[in-house]
Design a binder for these strands. Structure first.
Lengths: 325, 325
DNA sequence: TTGAAAGCGATACCAT
DNA sequence: ATGGTATCGCTTTCAA
């Protein structure tokens, strides 16, 4: 350690650096002066290694950053974590099956203080690794009654059901859904499931469910609704996987002279900022994405500092009764 | 090391784990079997510490994730890095001045293999720390003729100038600009500067430059253009800080019955996906955000593996002559 | 092909 | 208030 060139033992220097007491003010000043002079930076790798501690890293896995909702979640996480001296180690995994498992192995080898994982379904090996690693884990986005450890999210199926019921209550009979195709059971699938259930219970018909092999963006909504209408022109209202897709659909309708909601009702999900510029309010489901991230980070930090934590947080959702249905 | 319960020394096990040769196939199989059985995960912290190596972390600082362009940059970075066994350690710094310096200190203490920093202006202490740390650094977004180490970005001033010239060539005389306020000299300021220069050279008048204290999003564009028009109604065309703001402005015009480009011309910057749903093409500047991230990661990886690297990459830009001016 | 020993930079523990 | 010593898990070096 360079700072003991200041005439003290490395132990004393270490104590000063960590400000844990047990040194005189003079010593302190002498050490800090040398630190400053030499531009000394502590080696946290060595510290973690030494103390058999965990690092201050938090591994955060999200499907991808292209999806705007997850950037908000991530921002919520990182803001909170960095305020408490932790670092986010990113993992964009869900693009390829099996990536999560690989990523978790890597990130665990860095002795992270905790993990935040998107989704509640993981490979069996992942479960094993997590158990063996014995660290705080928060699963986010979807809700699970039996989380691996902790969980922050919302009941996607209920949100779809709520939207279905609402649309039924508006008198619609012929429903459509446009989303994108996902490999596994996931949140969007749960929404569709709840939606379909409510439609059925309301004696409506979910005539057309379009699952496109594309990303859930504006353009996908644009051509998705076009495709849906051409094959099921009797559709009265369409529920979209997210607001981006709904916005694309609205633009399509505008371009084609289809009046919304007169000719076609449109509902989104997620309440993304883009919808705020419409001259009318988009019917959608509000979810506080940032709050999911913050709550997840908070839970993790509490657990790391040894507090007891309520394992499951339901951040809920709110149906926005807009003017597009 | 647990795996030497397989009857070999830890050295042999270590060699097998790193697959560096110097062991028999039988030994190999025996060790790997134990690794599997015990669910052994290597401790990379110890490895880095031991070898006096760098870690595989790459520190990536970006202003914030709310700004869509940086999420694309980040995605480009992380895709490339993770494909080569590196991990992104996130730093959202620019919200507060001085945060970058603090963050760099922290991240350097983890012995990262390299850094990617947004922007080319850094505090003097940051410069010192980077020099002392002696690691590859890529500055992104803005271009610098004299980067600290390496640099990937584009000439923002030139892009503003190009837009200015183009609008002048379309016969406009009264120009406006709407952006957001930033504390330091930055990319958007450079664009405005180039824009103003071109307008002046074209004998136009940049009557109104609106710098709002807000985030550069849809809604900011919406009320920004409203504010600009009320104080400078003679404005014929407005250049916005980004496409999101331009989109907000277009929605405003639509709501108020202002025809675009008949009554007012609108130009954006950055070519964000949202504009793709307009029934006409937005006049804007195309920048390949993803490519900036990828190129930065590539440069870093090349340098890390000891190759010589061209220090500066200009990813350029392309003026999109749309239908909104 | 294998192993024994030193050491990386910090901290915990025990002494002074 | 201060310092000596062992130690963390792994890699490097040297020897067998």
């Amino acid at each position: 350690m360079v700072a003991e060139a200041a005439g003290v033992s490395k132990m004393t220097a270490s104590r000063v650096l960590r400000n844990e007491g047990g040194f005189s003010p003079q010593t302190r000043d002498r050490v800090l002066a040398e630190v400053e002079r030499l531009g000394y930076l502590p080696n946290r790798i060595a510290a973690v290694f030494s103390g058999d501690q965990k690092s201050t890293f938090i591994g955060v896995s999200i499907p991808d950053l292209g999806n705007e909702v997850f950037t908000h979640v991530l921002e919520g996480i990182d803001r909170k974590l960095s305020a408490f001296g932790h670092q986010t180690v990113l993992g964009m995994t869900q693009r390829v099956a099996g990536e999560e498992e690989k990523w978790i192995g890597t990130v665990l080898s860095w002795q992270p203080a905790g993990l935040i994982l998107t989704g509640v379904s993981h490979a069996p090996r992942v479960q094993q690794m997590l158990e063996a690693a014995d660290l705080p884990v928060v699963e986010i986005w979807e809700l699970s009654a039996t989380p691996f450890d902790m969980c922050v999210g919302l009941d996607h199926e209920a949100s779809g059901r709520a939207m279905g019921r609402y649309l039924v209550s508006k008198g619609y009979k012929h429903f459509g859904y446009v989303g994108t195709h996902h490999d596994a059971a996931n949140a969007a699938a749960a929404r569709l499931s709840g939606f379909g259930e409510a439609v059925k219970a309301g004696e409506g018909r979910l005539k057309k469910q379009l699952l496109l092999n594309d990303v859930p963006g504006f353009y996908t909504g644009y051509y998705g609704v076009e495709q849906l209408l051409s094959s099921a022109p009797e559709t009265e209202v369409v529920f979209f996987q997210n607001d981006n897709m709904a916005m694309g659909a609205i633009q399509f309708c505008q371009a084609k002279g289809i009046s919304v909601p007169g000719d076609l009702g449109i509902a989104g999900w997620g309440e993304l900022p883009i919808a705020s510029v419409l001259p009318y309010r988009l019917t959608t489901v509000r979810v506080n994405h940032l709050r999911i991230g913050q709550a997840a980070a908070e839970k993790l930090l509490l657990r790391i500092s040894g507090d007891s934590v309520d394992p499951v947080t339901d951040v809920g959702f709110q149906l926005i009764e807009g003017e597009t249905v």
